[in-house]
Design a binder for these strands. Structure first.
Length: 274
DNA sequence: CGGTACGCCTGAAGGC
DNA sequence: TGCCTTCAGGCGTACC
């Protein structure tokens, strides 16, 4: 999923689906994905716990349960969180949380990169992912954004992807944001002028909000918790559009590698700084 | 501090 | 058809 818009969509859809429900049972065939508590511990502890709040922290879904318990999920590359009838058969479901009623919350994850944390809130917040999360990419004000950009060095793409600086940005959002801002991903934060910082902040907000509005990106795997598909992938400008025309200037979109990640740009409207 | 490469997994897509 | 290579919404670690 699994960037900020997809996690935000998942949380919004999970709230009405999970509100007031209790967990009945836990099952996994991939205990390596569990953090803080072991599978037997979760099995023993989770029955009867009520879901009180659904929160997004960066790209993680955080469920606050009764008795000070927290269940957090990260879908990583190929995960999706679904609400399905109990016992739904699927070889890629590796975590099942049976709910009061006839449904269960599952983590469907082909590549098994997904992570599930279960423990007290203080234990979860101490985990390195949560402890180091930077300002939420959608919540960050322009003042905060500017301050952060001025305090860091490095390529814009690297900075946008760093979860300890701005949390929630992934590869699609980074490329679409930089395209919209007409900034090359290898431009360096320390050489941006005030106007460029402003354009970058505005572009980031625009791209995030637009993706959320369209239901996030369904490329192949990812779905909403109710199995609906997102519409942003067809609306994107450059990501994975190598060889196609730039929708703004009719230049050709190319693929380069920046920060070890496939990166898509229009070389005409995002001029290389070097 | 910043940059890069790799591991973790499985499957899809493209080249030949 | 099939084999081989490359690539993939993330992130942690090791190393320069």
């Amino acid at each position: 999923m699994p960037e900020l818009p997809e996690v935000e969509i998942a949380c919004r859809k999970l709230r009405p689906l999970l509100g007031g429900k209790r967990f009945l049972r836990f099952w996994t065939d991939w205990p390596r994905g569990l953090r803080i508590s072991s599978a037997p511990e979760v099995k023993k502890d989770i029955p009867g716990k009520r879901i009180e709040k659904v929160e997004r922290l960066g790209k993680a879904i955080v469920l606050h349960l009764s008795h000070e318990r927290v269940l957090a999920l990260h879908q990583k590359m190929s995960g999706k969180v679904l609400i399905v009838p109990q016992g739904t058969k699927d070889t890629h479901i590796h975590f099942r949380f049976a709910l009061s009623g006839d449904k269960e919350l599952v983590l469907h994850d082909v590549r098994k990169f997904g992570v599930v944390w279960y423990g007290r809130e203080d234990e979860v917040k101490k985990e390195s992912y949560f402890a180091s999360l930077g300002k939420d990419a959608l919540g960050v004000s322009f003042g905060e954004f500017k301050k952060l950009m001025e305090s860091k060095k490095g390529m814009l793409k690297s900075l946008l992807l760093r979860q300890d600086v701005f949390s929630g940005v992934g590869n699609i959002i980074a490329d679409e944001t930089l395209w919209r801002a007409r900034l090359h991903p290898k431009r360096r934060a320390e050489y941006l002028n005030a106007a460029e910082i402003k354009i970058l902040w505005r572009s980031l907000r625009f791209v995030l909000n637009r993706s959320i509005k369209l239901g996030g990106s369904t490329m192949r795997d990812w779905l909403h918790p109710d199995a609906a598909r997102g519409g942003y992938f067809t609306a994107r400008a450059v990501y994975r559009r190598k060889g196609e025309r730039c929708p703004r200037c009719a230049g050709v979109i190319t693929r380069i590698v920046v920060a070890s990640r496939g990166t898509f740009i229009c070389a005409s409207c995002q001029p290389d700084p070097n």
